[in-house]
Amino acid sequence: MIAWRGDDPPPTPEQLAAYADGELDGRPECAALRQHIEAWLAHHPEADAEVEAQRRLAQLWQASSPPEPSEAAWNDVLAQLEQHAATRPAAPARLGLFGKRALAAGVVAASAAAVWLTLAWLKPPAGGEVARQGPPRPEVRPQPVPPRPAPRDVEPFPVATADEVEILSIQGADTGTLVVGEPPVRGPLVLVAQGEVEVTRAEPEVRMGSAGPPMIWAPLANERDDP
């Protein structure tokens, strides 16, 4: 075990939780961190309570596992799935690399043909002068073909809701540009109020950044007595 030195930084709560979860076991790249945490725990027995609390929560979780549905309920679901499988239209086969290249080549060839036909139609017939009766036709330039989006291998997630967005950190320069709201915005944009945001951890550079005002300026609980 690595000897603990008093000036070593303590593990973060997240690292401690990962240790209790066994996430550091059997991973050579995490061996040093695991030893560091074990050494720290040996000198901080009070932290055992935190690890123990995590284990008790896991125990409660396992004890409350939902009961399985009846076999009849499963059979109903399976029957619906088999019906779905039988009736769904045949999915288009995915294009391999060769297929994608062939498709791209086809698109380019079709576009080139369309441009060539357009230019040929605009070009005066060979073998004689043709007096122009009207104003000159505008020059037609071939438009670039937008690339086709690549097929996706996961179902697209429709729209992110407010709950699905978690701001993990924000740089000082960005604090003035953060907008919080619920799309679609159909009226005046209501900005987030103080009571609607819980500041769990604020880094000094966010609170004291010189590039602009902080996102939220409200005294934290431990600062309320400050002058």
Binding site: L81, H84, R94, R152, E155
Partner: peptide, 26 residues
């Protein structure tokens, strides 16, 4: 609850079936 969970399982498996050709095994 059980009823909603069963519906979600059915919907999830059905979507998985629909999108199975796009599953590349990554």
């Amino acid at each position: 609850n059980e009823a909603d969970a069963l519906d979600a399982v059915q919907e999830g498996f059905a979507k998985a079936l629909t999108h199975l050709p796009g599953f590349e095994g990554r």
